[in-house]
Design a protein around this nucleic acid. Sequence first.
DNA 1: TGTACATCAGTGAACGCGCGTTCACTGATGTAC
DNA 2: TGTACATCAGTGAACGCGCGTTCACTGATGTAC
Lengths: 200, 200
Amino acid sequence: MRISKAQTKENKERIVAAAAQLFHERGFEGVGVAELMHAAGLTHGGFYNHFESKQQLEAEACALSFGEALHPLSRIGALESGRERRAAFAGYIENYLTQREAGAPPPRCPFVVFGSDMPRQGEGTRGVFGKGLRAYLEKFAGALRRKSKRADETRAGAIFAMAALVGASTLAYGVDEIDTDLAQEIRDVVRARLIEEFAD
Amino acid sequence: MRISKAQTKENKERIVAAAAQLFHERGFEGVGVAELMHAAGLTHGGFYNHFESKQQLEAEACALSFGEALHPLSRIGALESGRERRAAFAGYIENYLTQREAGAPPPRCPFVVFGSDMPRQGEGTRGVFGKGLRAYLEKFAGALRRKSKRADETRAGAIFAMAALVGASTLAYGVDEIDTDLAQEIRDVVRARLIEEFAD
DNA sequence: TGTACATCAGTGAACGCGCGTTCACTGATGTAC
DNA sequence: TGTACATCAGTGAACGCGCGTTCACTGATGTAC
């Protein structure tokens, strides 16, 4: 049964969205093509009508994740007032380093979720990661810009802040449920330091 | 053919060592039991004489990685002079954030290599990760201690420095070969900042 | 606008493959006397 | 110390299973006239 073009496009988007979520939860290797298709309400046989390979879907799902993660930062950078930007950035960090309720689906940062796996991924996916990282750093710099700072200082600050955020989140998620106190301590320390340095 | 106790122990150690290296290179899911055993010079059938499951080997290989990663930090903490400790710590960061020669086997930090995968690992492996993290932070604090700083300030500094290192390395390795300049920029920025803050 | 036909996204069975794990068997090592 | 036997790490074939991918087929959609 042939499907309308609009329906086809919507189906593909549903596959990519389901993949992004499932890859976040269980990693690229932890979810099979059949399960992905069923999560999108389809059967697995049609997969290759939309994608050349599972790898291609991995790349597209990554791109979706990075795109979505970028939105809140764009909003901060668009603020005119430096004071507002800093307050919004503090809120961003607060949110980024706050533990989710137990059981709640954690909307984790794609850099944290996919970071370790990147060196082993295909070229397409790594390209998406690189593009996402460059975009992220630009938005970070946009949010952190200050009249008193040169552009290269702002960029260095963006890189450093992002490294600290990603590292803290990676370590904290690694020991969540095993050592909740340590996870919380890591989040608290890094949050306080970053807000002190960049949003005060 | 029964094997001597000493030989048996050595065989198991060889399996764990081979696993640690291969897991570093290709991740837990990227290496099969048969390949691991052959890398240790054995056949796959004997695997379950040494381990209850592949998961158990993953945990033991992780423990080995963390143990080895700890040694250089222990040496720094053992130094008496604060000036020497700071110089050694600067060297540690320098080494940690320096790109390997192309083709050279990269002795990457286990937190970077396994970090993203931890939330999806079994309890045993996550426990090893947590233990490794606590040990690492103590050594970091030992290396960073200063007479002018309270213990809790030193610990906070250790946590923050480690988060920045792990994050920078995760991001840089993610874009190595895709965007070498960006990888280098991340390493340079974070190295300079950390040395300025902690080792000057 | 209506008709005839080609297109192609969907389905579900089937493919080969490699995975983690189990098993019967071997024979040198370790142990009991 | 020497002998007889139980132990158990090793081997390699075999297990079932789920994976990514392919395929023949269906039938509504899109297109050509």
